[in-house]
Amino acid sequence: MTLLAVERIKLFSTRSPWWCMALAMVITIGMAAVIAANTDERFPLSVPVSQGFTNFGMVVIMVMAALAVTTEYRFGTIRSTFLAAPDRVRPLLAKTTVVALLSALVGEVIAFGSWGIGRLIKPDADMALNSAAEWRNVAGTGLVFAFAAVLAVAVGILVRQTAAAVAILLVYTMLLENLIGIIPTIGPKIQRWLIGRNSDHFLTAGNESFISEGGGADQPFGPWGSLAYYAAVCVGFLVVALVVAKRRDA
């Protein structure tokens, strides 16, 4: 518990997490408000439509998670941390836990905020959470954000430089996964195993009104299986990062 408290203090003592959280909320909920205000009979507002921009908020939170690690390497404070806990694994796990829990909380605020602003702007729209799929679409966002933060922390531990970590996360989440899908023949087969496609499948499966490229019919797992696969990959990267951090110099 002491390590968790220390990591919480370190995280909230800098401005970058506050800016990242505020930016993620403003961008995502703001775009949800713009979309809700411009829906009509041809493009009606629904629960999945209100959640269409959560990935933008997730990218910002992943940057925040990476900064939680790379900032310590940049200013050398990680050496003091490792001197206090020579095994290195415990403080890094504590940092990952704090960042993941915070990311999950922000994800829930973003998801329910986007849903709530839609109901406020268009009170007559069908925005009720009547099915398990609709609840998963909204409430499941926190889980996706949490594991995305775990992956971002792992990348930060591995590369240790802010610019490199942020570049890797942005290129992969916003560019690489989509580019792989356009490769003839093998692209779609590879894409169905990528973590972004599986996290999206977890959130959107069963919501027939959701419109996405490729859909989720060809995914190898059901929604909860996709979440388990997504979580396993993120945690796997963290395990690799912890092994590397334990073996190399700080």
Rank of each mutant, 00 (worst) to 15 (best):
residue 47 V to Y: 01
residue 47 V to A: 01
residue 114 S to W: 10
residue 99 V to E: 03
residue 108 E to S: 12
residue 58 M to Q: 13
residue 66 A to E: 09
residue 231 A to T: 10
residue 130 N to L: 14
residue 37 A to T: 08
residue 158 L to F: 05
residue 139 A to Y: 05
residue 81 T to N: 11
residue 240 V to K: 00
residue 242 L to C: 06
residue 10 K to P: 06
residue 13 S to W: 12
residue 15 R to E: 06
residue 95 K to M: 14
residue 80 S to Y: 06
residue 54 T to R: 09
residue 25 M to P: 13
residue 32 A to I: 00
residue 83 L to G: 01
residue 30 G to H: 08
residue 4 L to Q: 02
residue 144 V to D: 00
residue 16 S to W: 10
residue 51 Q to Y: 09
residue 211 I to R: 11
residue 87 D to M: 08
residue 133 A to H: 03
residue 125 A to V: 15
residue 151 L to F: 07
residue 45 L to E: 04
residue 82 F to Q: 07
residue 66 A to M: 09
residue 83 L to Q: 10
residue 126 D to F: 13
residue 40 D to H: 01
residue 203 L to S: 06
residue 55 N to D: 10
residue 236 G to T: 11
residue 42 R to Q: 10
residue 171 V to I: 14
residue 49 V to A: 08
residue 153 V to M: 02
residue 77 T to S: 15
residue 234 C to H: 06
residue 83 L to K: 01
residue 197 R to I: 15
residue 36 A to V: 10
residue 158 L to I: 12
residue 152 A to W: 03
residue 23 L to C: 14
residue 65 A to R: 07
residue 38 N to Q: 12
residue 162 T to C: 00
residue 230 Y to V: 09
residue 181 G to P: 14
residue 145 F to W: 03
residue 172 Y to K: 01
residue 133 A to I: 07
residue 8 R to D: 01
residue 115 W to I: 15
residue 196 G to A: 13
residue 96 T to S: 11
residue 3 L to H: 04
residue 168 I to F: 05
residue 17 P to M: 00
residue 2 T to Y: 02
residue 213 E to I: 14
residue 193 W to C: 07
residue 192 R to T: 15
residue 114 S to G: 12
residue 124 D to F: 09
residue 207 N to K: 03
residue 226 S to Y: 02
residue 11 L to G: 04
residue 20 C to S: 15
residue 65 A to K: 06
residue 94 A to M: 12
residue 82 F to M: 10
residue 37 A to D: 07
residue 179 L to Q: 08
residue 214 G to P: 07
residue 113 G to K: 12
residue 3 L to I: 10
residue 112 F to T: 15
residue 61 I to F: 10
residue 141 T to N: 05
residue 213 E to D: 11
residue 156 G to N: 02
